[in-house]
Design a protein around this nucleic acid. Sequence first.
DNA 1: TCTGGGGTCCTAGGACCC
DNA 2: TCTGGGGTCCTAGGACCC
Length: 421
Amino acid sequence: MISITNYILHIDVNSAYLSWTAAYRLQQGYELDLRTVPAVVGGSEKSRHGIVLAKSMPAKKFNIITGESIRDAYQKCPKLICVAPNYDLYMKASAAMVEIIREYSPKVQRFSIDECFVDYNDLATGRHAIDIAKEIRKRMWDELGFTVNIGVSTNKILAKMGSDFQKPDRVHTLFPNEIQAKMWPLPVGDLFMVGSRTEAKLKGLGINTIGELAQTDVALLSAHLKSHGYLVHAYANGIDHSPVRKSNREIVKGMGNSTTVRFNVEKREDANLVLLSLAESVGMRLRQASVCAGLVSVSIRSTEFTGGGHQRKISVTTDSTTYIHKIAMQLFDEMWDGQLIRKLGLRVSDLYSNDYVQLSLLEEFDFERQKALDDTVDKIRGKYGSSAIHRASFLHSGLRPVTGGIQDDGEDEYPIMTCIL
DNA sequence: TCTGGGGTCCTAGGACCC
DNA sequence: TCTGGGGTCCTAGGACCC
């Protein structure tokens, strides 16, 4: 017998935004634990950000689902408590969680703000992975005040599926010899990477459970789902060879920001300002990551929820706020048909290290001068905050001079957290 | 005052080249 | 004078995730 020494853990915060908010409020001296009553984290309806981002277990009992409008949620439960998101708090809570997890293994992959994978070798400590998982679960509660689910297995897909079993505050195993008993009876839509469209197609083929998917001829699946068919078939059989990567950061493919504007945009000049504020944050993020982009994309969503995207490769790679904005406006002008706009997005990709920025001789654009300006603005914002300096065109516009990334809803802000979390 | 924001990967079709 | 084949690049859009 060969004993397994390498395990994969998947750690997932239960109702992350809500749990973190609840834990924080307890620390601040609130009596009520939001996790014990129907409560949601959601944006404000007035600024048209009113959807449920996270819900408590009691809220779930009222059939409130993530992503639905706050209004619909109130209809289901009039006593519902709704609190604003606090992304600064979430980043801190996430960092505190990862710091503890890294005590057990150097191979930790942050999969999202509230999830990570751990490659754990029990030769290192002589302790079994299941015991480690139980200890991590307990420490999250004791030291940070929130609960997690942990899945333990031998690869990422099984660990992830395992962490999704009964919640909250549980450790589950899903080893290969447990697949048939624990995973195959589940509805096919529960499988990672089977979303609503794929689920509908599979049901059309008479496939209703993960087990049925696992035992379907992969040729049939690929005929209907192309390469996605191979993927979900492998996942249904618990097959996944992807490694736990130490870092996601080095392999970022693109970055973008988008915003639902507080009012319907009908004037080009307002769209121009919104895209400028998005370019400010995208540009800052590029410069912070020391990369330049070779592709710019703009997306528009109308008040009718129609719309699309428009993108263009650019002849230079750039991290210039002003240049990105200039391209974005070209794209906008080519695409906009005058419809009322609800949401605008700006995204850059084709990222290259900015060590070798090419300066185009053809462009009538002074990259050197803009670079100096961007650097100065970044320094001031780094020191005094992103609202310390902004372009005069935003004065009296009713628009944010910088849009995207970590920011809160503005109305009901929490103070910066100072406690242990 | 219905419907957020940030990502990744895949596919299809047209342009263009040899 | 309807007509091949292979390849890459570019753009649009769909599907999935948290």
